[in-house]
Nucleic acid binder design. Structure first.
Lengths: 258, 258
DNA sequence: GGGGCGTTCGCACTATCTGCGAAACGCCAT
DNA sequence: ATGGCGTTTCGCAGATAGTGCGAACGCCCC
C-alpha cells in the first residue's frame, strides 16, 4: 500500500492545484485552454473544469468573449495591489526619503524584510532623477547584486544567507555580479564591518548604489535606505552619499518605533 | 433534506477558501492571525492551519519572523506582475500612443476589454504631462465615469451594460459623476452616435478625458485610445483632441491585426 | 509556577472531490 | 442540411482528501 510517496507534504491538494493553475496561466502570455491546463497538471477534465469554474467565479480567471483560453482576471490585480498597499511606508518615513532625494539629487529607496524575503517599500524619485528601471515597489529580486540586498543579507547569519541563496539563486546580471558564494560571504563580512553596503554595476551596468541600515529600537536591522547614482559619479561623491544615506537610515529608524 | 441551502453553487470548496483567505489577508493592512482568519471564515483551526500552511508553502503568504500574523507573500507579487505582462501592448501600438502623447502634450491611454471587464493596457506619459494619479496599468475602475469606459460600454448592448453595472456598481466619484442608469444610457447612446466619448470632471475634479474606439478588422470595438487634459483646457482644444484621438485609435486598429 | 495564546498532532467520520464515461453543445467545412 | 471535431456539462459511485474535535505541546508574559 501507498507505494507512491506521499505528495509534497503539507498541503490541501485542491488549493495547491488552484494556485498552480494561476501560475500556469500567468506564465502563458496569451493564456491557456482548459485542455492545456489539464494536460500540464495531469488532471482529469472534470476536475480541471471544476477548478477553472471556481477560479473564474471568483474572478481570478476570465476569458475573452468567444475565446477558449483562460487569462488572469481582476482579482489577481486586486490582490497584487493589496500587497502594494501593505508595503507603503508612513508619511514621516516617506518625508525622510523625499528629503534624502532632494539632498543628493538621486532616487532614494526604502527596503524592508518581508517574511524571509526583501521588499521595496518606497521609492522617492523625480523626473530629473528617475528610479532604476527594473526596480518597483514589491518584492525585490537579485538581492545578492544590490546594495540594499547585501546590507540586509549581512544582518543575517551564514545559515540564513545560505538558505536565502538556495531559494533565490545568485544569477549573474552583469559582468560584475558576484555569483560566487565565498566571495559574497567576504563582501557581507565587510558590510558588517562598515555597516554600509556599496554596489557598482552589479545590478545594472553604469549604475552604482549605496545603502545603510535601518534598525529597530532593539538594534535589529529591519530595513535599508539606499540611493543610486551613475557609476562614474560614485568616486567623487562617495563620501557625501555615505553621510546622506547613513543620516536617512538613522532618521527612518527613529520614525518606525512600534 | 439538506435543510441548509447548498453552498454558493460552483466551486471547489478548498480552493474557494484558500482564495478567500488571500483576500482577507490582503484587506488587512497589517495582516491577520490564524485565529482571526479561522473566526472570520467560520473554519475549524485544524482546517485553517492546514490551508495557511499550504499558502505559506507556496509563498502566497508569509510572516515576519517572530510575528504571528500572516501577510501577503512573494507569489502574490509575481502573479500581479504576470498580469501586467499579459496586458502590455506591442511596440508599434506603444509607438502610436507615444506619438499621440507628443502631438497633444497630454497623457495617452490604451484600454482593452479583458473578459467582461475593462483594463488599461498602456499609458504614454512624461514628467511634464503625467498620467492621472489613480490610473494604472491593470483593471480599470469606475468605468461609468471615464471616457474610455463610456466608450467601451457603449459598444455593448443594454443587457450587457446592465450586467456590468450590477457587478461593478456606479459609484459617485465627483459631483459630476453620473450614477443614474437612465442618464448613463442616454450618454451611451450619444457616444454610439458620435463614436466618441467625452468626460469632464466625472472621474476626478479638474480633469477631462476624451476617447475614440479601437476596432478589430471585423469592426467590433475592442478597445479605446484616450487622452486626459485639464478640464479648463478642454473647450479650446476639443476639436484638436478629437482629431488626435480618432487618428490614434485608427492607427492602433490598423496595428492589432490579430 | 501558573495562565493565556499559538500551533501541532491523532483520530474517526463523511462530505467533498475525483475520474470515467457519455451526452449536449457549438462551430466549421463539406 | 449533415457530419465531424473540439469544448463543455452532466451523472454517478467510490473513496480519497478534507474536516472538526479534543488534547497535547511549546512559548511568552504575568
Amino acid at each position: 500500500m501507498s507505494a507512491v510517496e506521499r505528495r509534497s507534504g503539507a498541503g490541501i491538494q485542491s488549493a495547491e492545484r488552484a494556485l498552480r493553475i494561476l501560475e500556469l496561466v500567468g506564465a502563458a502570455p496569451t493564456g491557456l485552454t482548459a485542455a492545456e491546463i489539464a494536460e500540464r497538471l495531469g488532471l482529469g477534465q472534470s476536475t480541471t473544469y471544476r477548478l477553472l469554474a471556481t477560479l473564474q467565479h471568483e474572478d481570478y480567471l476570465t476569458r475573452q468573449p468567444g475565446e477558449h483560453r483562460y487569462i488572469l482576471g481582476r482579482s489577481v490585480d486586486e490582490l497584487g495591489r493589496a500587497l502594494q498597499v501593505q508595503l507603503v511606508a508612513t508619511d514621516p518615513v516617506r518625508a525622510v526619503l523625499r528629503a534624502l532625494h532632494d539632498a543628493v539629487h538621486a532616487p532614494a529607496y526604502l527596503t524592508v524584510f518581508r517574511g524571509d524575503d526583501i521588499a521595496v517599500a518606497h521609492i522617492a524619485d523625480s523626473p530629473e532623477h528617475p528610479r532604476i528601471g527594473q526596480l518597483h515597489v514589491g518584492f525585490a529580486e537579485a538581492s545578492h547584486t544590490t546594495a540594499f540586498g547585501k546590507l540586509m543579507l549581512a544582518s543575517r547569519d551564514d545559515a540564513a544567507v545560505a538558505r536565502f541563496l538556495e531559494r533565490r539563486g545568485a544569477a549573474r546580471l552583469t559582468a560584475s555580479s558576484v555569483t560566487d558564494v565565498a566571495t559574497l560571504r567576504e563582501q557581507l563580512d565587510d558590510v558588517r564591518a562598515q555597516q554600509l553596503a556599496v554596489e557598482v554595476e552589479e545590478y545594472l551596468p553604469k549604475l552604482a548604489c549605496i545603502a545603510a541600515p535601518v534598525r529597530s529600537p532593539a538594534g535589529r536591522v529591519v530595513g535599508a535606505v539606499s540611493v543610486s547614482v551613475s557609476a562614474k559619479d560614485l568616486p567623487s561623491r562617495a563620501w557625501e552619499l555615505e553621510r546622506a544615506v547613513r543620516r536617512g537610515a538613522w532618521q527612518v529608524s527613529a520614525r518606525v518605533a512600534g
